[in-house]
Amino acid sequence: MSKEETMKANPNGGERDRVIAHLNMFAVLPRLAELAEFDQEAKELVKGMEYSIRFRVLGGPTLLISISNGEIKTSATDSASADTGLMFTSYAQINKMFAGEKVVPLPYWGAWKLGDLKRFTRLTELLEKYLKADEEDLKDPVFAEQVVKMTLRVAVCAVPQLVAHDHKSIAWSASVPEGVAMFKVLPDGPATCISKISGTYKPILGDVKNPTVATEFKDLNVALAVLSGKMDAMAALGLGDIRISGLIPMADHLNSIIDRIGHFMQ
């Protein structure tokens, strides 16, 4: 599909805004689930909290975030009700909110529940601490491992969004062979996968036994450097800092698509 054709198919905003909104909704915000598992402040915030919030883009996707029993779950389902429902009139408007700018969405359902909303906002700030981690924080190996884990998960969750909405990824997707691609930090660090079966991409938030192709990072530092775009991956392969075994073209083409995340989420 050409750039013009994808624009026509998605009249609610330009391609860039549409891609960014989908990445935020379906690759970044779902990371709140992990945040509630290991971040101490997040754990405190969600303790005893029973709250749900729905983000809806007019004519576009919807995302339900439910906080209950100390857990955070996200879903694209449209059927379940939410305590608060926020309608954004465009992709650009929801992106402004994600960027921290002041926007006023339409509360189309429920009450504001200001206390819960405030706690929810704090959770998103904590999420940013991991996804835009500073060098000082990364010196802590426990924190660094969580950053890598979340970044890998953002990457694999971003792929289905990119191949659906980004015209370059749509074109490149045809070159990606079918199978399961695994990304893993050695020796026993985080692992995550993306499968392509019958043309459909699905993230798998963990490792699998026999991936079609495995990309293995020597350690957390290598993973951090590659994922943050600070390391030449081709050189790292030759140096043994990254090892790819199996169907290399799958990893190669997927990496090109994953690289597009940086183009949208700077």
């Binding site: 030449d232 081709m234 392969l237 030759g238 043994g240």
Partner: peptide, 28 residues
């Protein structure tokens, strides 16, 4: 080979670009 590759990585993007990249053999 590895020593030279390390040096190449300093001066050449990808160290050995194109079809001769070790990435499509079995590096190591």
């Amino acid at each position: 080979s590895h020593e030279l590759f390390k040096e190449a990585a300093r001066y050449i993007p990808g160290a050995i670009p194109g079809h001769m990249t070790p990435a499509i053999t079995v590096p190591g």
